[in-house]
Design a protein around this nucleic acid. Structure first.
Length: 785
DNA sequence: GCGACGGCCG
């Protein structure tokens, strides 16, 4: 683009002035500093910087012009707004400017022009436009300083209009840096980050010169490392390398671009570190998973050799580091510090403290703070509700939500996602549906996270059809959304569909991650696709660069074990790069049970008991294996060993939700209000079953019981009680959904298959690992679980 | 006229 000589001169003149003002880093006269050398490599052509440094004035435009932006979704600003197509005689126009009151315009900064005062008093665009019109009539508009005030108002005030600001800007002949900055900051404040950068790019091309206020906004709008480095380069060359504001925002920019090394470099080289610099750097380390570094910096700050005292933000950032490091000791130190130094009540600090206590598992401490604090906002409610959910206290979370509603605080999408997670854990489909309806009614924005939470809830509460429908209704899906559906399909035995969606995901260009493969391997295992499973496992590292973790080895062990290839599964465990955990060995043990491989089972159990001697599941499974092989003595020995170690089988517990209320049953439970009816129903069930040829499978009950007792014990299992209650209290045709805390026993499994046929009901049981979808006398798990 | 901070999904 051709430029006039006068613009070029002006640019250079201004630039020299900036250089004189700049008392920090000087580019000329002493060669390149380390930072400049580093920047030079980021710059599109290092030669330009060198030539510039020799002080040749023509280089000013060369050095400033190139700024390569990486987004192409919008055309450059110049096509929307004519920039700098202005009256070239403007330099003389200042002489004729008079105010609307006929006063001479003075340059005394202590006496603002009356027109400027009026602009500052504007409360809406219509008033502003009147002033604008008057300024045009009087010629005052041709004073760049005064015209800039119009632009500033339009860009920065809530009642302003960025569009109008740009139009006005395009009419100003010699806009001041202040005017440009107003537009940039207006874009940044309104999250129009791309526009901020495009405007800067255009401004440089037109020969306008940035000042020290330009870069903070630009750095804030910069989301991309390559652009960030160019901007860093520009800020240095324009002489703001040692401006504290610029450096602070620069650090933050590097941190946002996940380039912590550069952020830290800027920090370490800063001469005047302010409390903001410290807070930013501590926050950056905390954000990018270097909590120890963050805490170290904080300790340096506490050391008091630094001239800066921590403030609330510093403390919030340190707490976020503590939360990542699960460093409760440090949290307590910070808490004490807060109390000692009397930081008073700071809502963000207080919520951060609550959050970190929740994350460290001290929900009660968080709750105390929550109950004590008079001020609450959506953040604090959400943190507290989430704290209870994470802690497994779903009821308390739901109670808190009710309290929130009573207080008239409306939940948002975060609240909803958290509550849906509670439903997912509880298996409370009705409640989940209610929340879904609430979301629609309250017009809560369903973003990817909330949509995924819905898909996950429906899938894990056994309504895979609705999960699939919600999935398809979502306009935007990320890897988690796909994974939630794939895992859901795998868990309810629809392996082929899970694999179909995996293919579709690939077509849609969504890259699977480690957890997607957990779902894929589970699907292959349930469907008995051994070769396909192995090939997916291999593709993880070969195609997607994901190193298989222990859960993937566990998945492959399941696939091999389920197919009866026990020896191969054992061999895999031998050669996997990490020691097996109880899930891997538990999978192997489960496979040994199904395939009746006693030797391998014993080997697996021995290892299991070594790594986790206090996991009751191992003992129970092992004794069941012995019992199923009629090795009563061994089975008894295992039970005795369990008793010696002071362990009990945790009580089996089944939940069923009817009309939004979750009913819980343990074995032989008679505490339910309708207990009498439930037991009548149970008798009816058992007699119908027996008529249909059902023989109780006694292999998994205690061996020292009389046969008749065994039968009774079986009939009292919690899932049978829950199913009986379900048959009683729901109308025919509706599916019965039960959530069980343990693995389903084989007797209940075969009984439920028959019940589904005899009563013509779909029965969906979620046990601790998967769904059993009983329909017409068969189960989706194909009798392997 | 400029800077830093908190909660959700697989």
């Amino acid at each position: 683009m051709p430029r006039s000589q006068s613009q070029e001169d002006r640019g250079w003149r201004l630039y020299s002035e900036f250089r004189k003002q700049e008392d920090g880093l000087t580019l000329r006269g002493r060669g390149l500093s380390e930072e400049e050398r580093e920047l030079q490599t980021h710059y599109s052509d290092g030669k330009e910087l060198k030539t510039y440094l020799k002080g040749r004035k023509t280089q000013i435009f060369v050095m400033a012009a190139p700024l390569t932006l990486h987004h192409h979704s919008k055309p450059p600003l110049s096509s929307d707004y004519p920039l700098l197509l202005r009256n070239p005689t403007s330099s003389s126009s200042i002489a004729v400017i008079t105010s609307s009151h006929g006063q001479k315009r003075t340059n005394d900064p202590n006496q603002p022009h009356p027109c400027i005062v009026s602009i500052e008093k504007c409360s809406n665009m219509s008033q502003l436009k009147q002033i604008h019109a008057q300024m045009l009539r009087t010629g005052l508009f041709f004073d760049p300083f005064t015209a800039g005030k119009i632009v500033a108002f339009c860009s920065l005030q809530d009642s302003g209009s960025l569009h109008y600001a740009r139009l006005v800007f395009s009419q100003i002949s010699n806009p001041t840096p202040y005017t440009c900055n107003s537009i940039i900051r207006g874009c940044t404040d309104k999250n129009l980050h791309q526009d901020a950068l495009l405007f800067y790019q255009e401004m440089i091309v037109q020969g306008l010169i940035p000042d020290r206020f330009t870069f903070p906004s630009l750095f804030k709008s910069c989301r991309n490392l390559s652009e960030g480095k160019q901007l860093h380069c520009h800020s240095t060359k324009f002489g703001f390398a040692s401006d504290t504001y610029a450096q602070n925002t620069l650090m933050n920019m590097y941190s946002n671009c996940r380039c912590l090394v550069s952020a830290r470099k800027v920090f370490d080289k800063m001469v005047d570190k302010t409390v903001v610099s410290w807070a930013t750097m501590i926050g950056a380390h905390a954000q990018w998973d270097q909590p120890d570094e963050a805490v170290k910096l904080f300790e340096r700050l506490m050391d008091e050799r630094e001239n800066v005292k921590p403030n609330e933000v510093t403390l919030v950032n340190v707490l976020s580091a503590c939360a990542r490091a699960r460093d409760l000791a440090m949290v307590k130190r910070v808490h004490q510090y807060i109390d000692e130094k009397g930081f008073g009540f700071h809502l963000v600090l207080n919520t951060a403290l609550m959050d970190v206590y929740c994350k460290c598992g001290c929900v009660q401490l968080a709750r105390d703070l929550f109950d004590k604090g008079q001020q609450k906002n959506l953040f604090s409610w959400n943190i507290m509700i989430n704290g209870h959910v994470e802690n497994g206290n779903y009821e308390e979370a739901l109670l808190l939500f009710r309290e929130m509603q009573i207080k008239g605080v409306k939940g948002d999408k975060v609240t909803m996602a958290t509550l849906l997670l509670a439903c997912t854990h509880l298996g409370a489909l009705e409640l989940g549906k209610w929340l879904h309806a609430y979301i629609k009614k309250q017009r809560i924005d369903v973003d990817v996270a909330l949509g995924t939470a819905l898909v996950d809830m429906y899938a894990k509460c056994g309504s895979i059809e609705t999960a699939t429908r919600v999935f398809h209704e979502m306009p935007e899906k990320d890897v988690m959304t796909w994974t939630a559906l794939i895992l859901g399909l795998a868990m309810c035995g629809q392996a082929e569909k899970a694999l179909q969606y995996f293919d579709e995901m690939h077509i849609k260009g969504v890259k699977p991650d480690a957890i997607t493969f957990v779902g894929i391997l589970a699907a292959c295992s349930h469907a008995g696709f051994v070769d396909e499973g192995i090939s997916h496992f291999n593709s993880m590292s070969d195609t997607y660069g994901i190193q298989p973790a222990i859960e993937h080895y566990g998945g492959l062990v399941d696939i091999l074990g389920r197919a009866g290839r026990i020896a191969e599964a054992e061999e895999l465990i031998q050669r996997m790069p990490m020691a097996p955990d109880r899930f891997v060995l538990g999978g192997l043990l489960g496979a040994c049970r199904i395939h009746g491989n006693l030797q391998a089972a014993e080997r697996a159990a021995k290892q299991l008991l070594e790594i986790d001697p206090y996991h009751s599941g191992t003992y129970v499974l092992m004794s069941n294996i012995y019992k199923s092989m009629r090795k009563w003595e061994e089975a008894k020995r295992i039970r005795e060993l369990m008793a010696e170690r002071g362990m009990k089988k945790p009580p089996g517990c089944s939940q069923i939700e009817v009309q939004g209320v979750v009913h819980e049953f343990v074995k032989g439970d008679s505490s339910h209000r309708q207990s009498l009816e439930i037991y009548e129903m149970l008798e009816d069930m058992i007699s119908k079953l027996k008529k249909a040829g059902y023989v109780p499978d006694k292999s998994e009950v205690l061996f020292d019981m009389a046969e008749e007792e065994k039968e009774t014990a079986l009939s009292l299992h919690s899932e049978k009680l829950a199913i009986a209650f379900g048959l009683l209290s729901t109308s025919s045709g509706t599916p019965i959904r039960v959530v069980k805390n343990l693995r389903m026993c084989s007797d209940c499994h075969s009984a439920t298959k028959l019940i589904s046929k005899l009563y013509n009901r779909e029965i969906i049981v979620r046990d601790r690992n998967r769904f059993h979808h009983f329909k017409d006398g068969s189960c989706s798990c194909r009798d392997f679980w």
